[in-house]
Simulated scan of single mutants.
Amino acid sequence: GPLLVLSPGNVFYLSGFRGSLGFLLVFPGGKTFFFCDGRYATQSREELAVEAEIVEFEQDAVASICDVFFSSRENLLFVEDVASVGFIRRFEEKKCPVIPCPSPVNALRAVKDEAEIRAIRRAVTVAEEAFRDVLPLIQEGISEHEIAVELEYRMRRRGGEAIAFPTIVASGKRAALPHARPTSARVKKGEWVLVDWGVRVDGYCADLTRVVPVGEVQETPFRKAFAALLEAQAIALELIREGVEAKTVDQKVREVLRKSGFERYFIHSLGHGVGIDVHEEPKLSTQSTAMLHRGMVVTVEPGIYSPEWGGVRLEHMVLVEERSCKVLDTLPETFDEKGGENRA
């Protein structure tokens, strides 16, 4: 039966439409309908890159979708399982036989073509240029919030259409929070600042993390933890290639961290796919059933977090190739105490 595509990312992937409200109804054999309200009628005619009949609805999208479905004489309507319970109930009220299902589009999106990889590279470049702009500002006395605002401004100024996610900036002990919100807390000398940032360019995302020391860091666990992260990163990058199970990479990283005594402080999965959305397939986790394929773009982001002294994380973006992988970002992994770049 036909598939109703609801996720904005999947709609963009299949059609090129970049508005915030539009649905695709794709029938077996390729007949496609695009549903939107009057706000997006003109935009859809300009942006749709597929042959689709545009159906403009006034208030009730479900009624319009049902009209097209019933006229097709199909028996079942499959709906992406991102649909809310209320949305599904509206179909049931109209006696439309719907089945929520995992979207097959997600698997298609996991492997990028050359145009998508170029867009991701552009996003990585913008993110890195913006970070280099802000790096000299990461000094004693600046607040986490000010760093985040400056970084987001520079990403937009350099051509980003939007930030990919709310920027994470955490200094000192607050770096133990993997998704810390920037606060008015001011950076102190002898601390380090964890920055996780990303930007969207041409519809595709970048996602990077670096740690910047401010002055000389005396905290011994910080140095030991960061050394362990570097080793874990190196192991992961050696493993990633076509045909490797995603969970194997995560497991090997945990083994490395276990030997250095830090495994219990690694409290999230190793990475995830990046593309139209900042989190997409495949997942690099112990629960993952995915196999890595050439053309996938994934993050590799081991982290160590302790409420007692703080946390560290290092995140690369990686393109899976046939016999190896390619790191797409070029920023150094470490920075000196004055915020300068260390290139070993």
Rank of each mutant, 00 (worst) to 15 (best):
E92L: 15
T167R: 01
L151V: 07
R45K: 14
A61R: 07
G22Y: 00
V318H: 11
T32E: 02
E129W: 08
T125F: 10
R73L: 10
E333M: 10
L331R: 09
G1M: 14
G86F: 06
E301S: 13
D277G: 13
T334H: 04
A290P: 04
D67P: 03
S44W: 04
E321H: 03
E53N: 06
A162W: 07
E322C: 10
G271R: 01
A234C: 05
G243R: 12
D277W: 07
A63I: 00
E308M: 07
T286I: 08
V297S: 07
C325L: 04
S260H: 00
G141N: 08
V244F: 06
H268R: 14
F266G: 02
S84R: 12
A227F: 13
A110G: 01
L77F: 01
V214T: 03
R158E: 13
V300S: 03
V11G: 00
R294N: 06
A206I: 04
I235S: 13
E74D: 07
P166E: 04
H179N: 14
Q139L: 09
P302W: 01
Q287G: 04
R181L: 13
A107Q: 15
D81P: 08
K31R: 15
A227G: 15
V98Q: 05
V211G: 06
S285D: 10
A290C: 08
A290F: 15
K112Y: 01
R258I: 00
A227C: 08
T299Y: 02
R118I: 13
A49C: 06
M291N: 07
T183Y: 11
T330Q: 15
M296L: 14
